[in-house]
Amino acid sequence: MIELAHVTKKYGKKTVLDDVSLTLEKGCYGLLGPNGAGKTTLIQSTLGIIRINKGSIQRKKDKDVGYLPQKLTFFEEATVNEMLYYFTTVKKIEKKDREIEIERVLKKVNLLEKKDERIKKLSGGMKQRMGIAQAILGDPQLIMLDEPTVGLDPEERKRFKELIVNMKEEKTVLISSHIVSDIEEICDRVIIMNQGKIIQDRALEKMELEKYYLETVNNIN
């Protein structure tokens, strides 16, 4: 479980997160909001990448986290396997488990046959899948994905959704996206942010989300 209480983050005079309180338990959460709403800052604050000015964040042990940043680049000259091996090292996965773990995640994102391919030869969608693969390396309990479906084709997107649906029973998954349909199909709960504040945090009522989201954001703007 993750608990954020009255979290405030400022960059100079600009308040990016304004007294945000949030509780995340097992399940899939969708984080929606226009550009500059504070979605990425919220994720990075939760993960401890950036320091908050006020409030508190409580989460489980540090190692148990998977994160897909919005912009993730790789050593283009490394192979898929080598690159993921780097991530297993950084994530402190035990040496003996590393190869098995790499195979497991590559299977999940359907990249096993590309294992020895150099990254520069992969398509944009494949690279995004590699990003997802690194996020789920080590089978973390908390997974935070920032715009995970960008660059994925419909088939890949479908596979990604299946992957998340399979995981959400046992893990906490937070997906930040501006694509409402992605969230609508896989998330149980939606958090809508605007100007650093959470303006809605509620269980998802299917088919209504897009309309509801647009109305909410339009009303504020």
Partner: peptide, 21 residues
């Protein structure tokens, strides 16, 4: 520079580890 753009630092920070790469 290639490392600094590769998010290893971010990932290692989340894992409270050193950027061994």
């Amino acid at each position: 520079r290639k490392n600094n753009t590769n998010s290893f630092e971010v990932v290692s920070k989340i894992s409270k580890g050193v950027n061994v790469i």
